[in-house]
Design a protein around this nucleic acid. Structure first.
Lengths: 223, 223
DNA sequence: CTGGATCCCTCACGATACTG
DNA sequence: CAGTATCGTGAGGGATCCAG
């Protein structure tokens, strides 16, 4: 353990000792969306070896970041959830994610998109000031697997996997949806080029697109 | 390289692929203070193997986060500095550092404190609203090695290693200085218990202590 | 002295198989 | 479903060496 430490009395060094191990922050990203079972986490992190997931959860639990909880009957499932301290990582995760999103170019081979990552992306890029006084709901579809329901109420947003009621607008798109958030792609162009398909009032789409933003757009790093 | 990726099209995953390797964010922390030579970085990261530092710098340079620059004569030294993109990591580094600072308990064996980490700590915990309208300078001393000069001008702060002129106040302290920032320790108690010694107008000390804050104080995780 | 490169060893990670 | 067991590989750790 001492050999894995950084030997520095420093907040950042301590943070990296706690959540800097490989996979740790991606686990926390998914737990920021809600409590998850072991298998849920595996599904959201397809390439994580199960023993590594097991190790990380034990470390995070030991360090007071994650809590293991057995649900009451009849569910009887064990779930992992963030503690108060773990929840406080949200701002750091958001800032890192916004920074990294600027380097998202094309989808690479073997890269997947998961519901939890999109949920966090929507929450991270949401601009309350652009949603002030607005009340609407939309469903975001990406591929056959992902259907997220978002409810916007006067500067706030709730994203969930359950689509409780019929949304005002259904947005069907691929990963290139990201280019809308960086403003590399205009809503009109996205519709014209067939990158996005709508079901509902098309006028709402512009409004929705304005509500999200990835700041500091930058070209892809040359390799 | 593909095997080191996370296989996710996600901003956070991409960020971790770029700066999630061991030591990378600590290197970036020091570079956020200013350009640094290879040897400066080694001094600020006493436990990093030189080959790892060399590898990280090459990776960060390849990914457009760090730039290697040869200074004009007569210096002729090569320094590493952050690119525009690298500089944009500041908020993420600050948020992670503030979160981790809550778990800083006592100084552990073999843990050191470095000037650059303290500089970033001062910048991270500075509260502009508490320094509105204030104009003062102070020198922070920790041990025989660290002497930082801070200049506060109406809601802004500049921290440097050069002490250009005589400061209004000299604050001599140890790592327990952190407890002032979490408000676990009051300025009066710090003076009474000899944790902090002053040279200058003691009335300024209270004012300075109010200018910095580590939010969300929390007990040390039990082991 | 700066700015690394090289070597060797260890352990964390990753892949796969298996169990309560 | 929720993990544990086993084992091979390669990245990180540490010491040393080398060129300008």
């Amino acid at each position: 353990m001492a050999s894995r430490g950084y030997g520095q009395y420093c907040g950042l060094a301590r943070a990296l000792e706690l959540v800097g191990e490989r996979w740790a922050l991606l686990i926390i990203r998914d737990l920021l969306v809600g409590p998850r079972r072991f298998t849920d986490l595996r599904k959201g992190l397809p390439r994580i070896p199960s023993n590594v997931l097991s190790d990380r959860l034990k470390e995070l639990e030991r360090d007071g970041i994650v809590r293991r909880r057995v649900l009451p009957r009849p569910a009887s499932a064990t779930v992992y959830e963030l503690t108060e301290y773990g929840l406080q990582l949200e701002q750091a995760v958001i800032q890192l994610g916004l920074w990294g999103a600027q380097s998202l170019g094309e989808v690479r081979a073997h890269e997947v998109v998961t519901p939890d990552s999109i949920t966090m992306a929507l929450r991270s890029t949401f601009r309350p000031e652009a949603a002030r006084g607005k009340h609407l709901s939309f469903e975001l579809r990406m591929g056959p697997e992902i259907r997220l329901h978002a409810q916007v109420e006067d500067g706030t947003i709730q994203v969930s996997e359950q689509h409780s009621e019929k949304p005002d607008l259904v947005i069907d798109c691929g990963p290139a949806f990201k280019d809308l958030l960086t403003r590399e792609l205009s809503p009109e162009a996205a519709l014209q080029q067939g990158i996005v398909r709508l079901d509902g009032d098309p006028k709402l789409f512009d409004s929705v697109a304005q509500m999200f933003y990835i700041p500091g757009h930058r070209e892809t790093a040359h390799v």
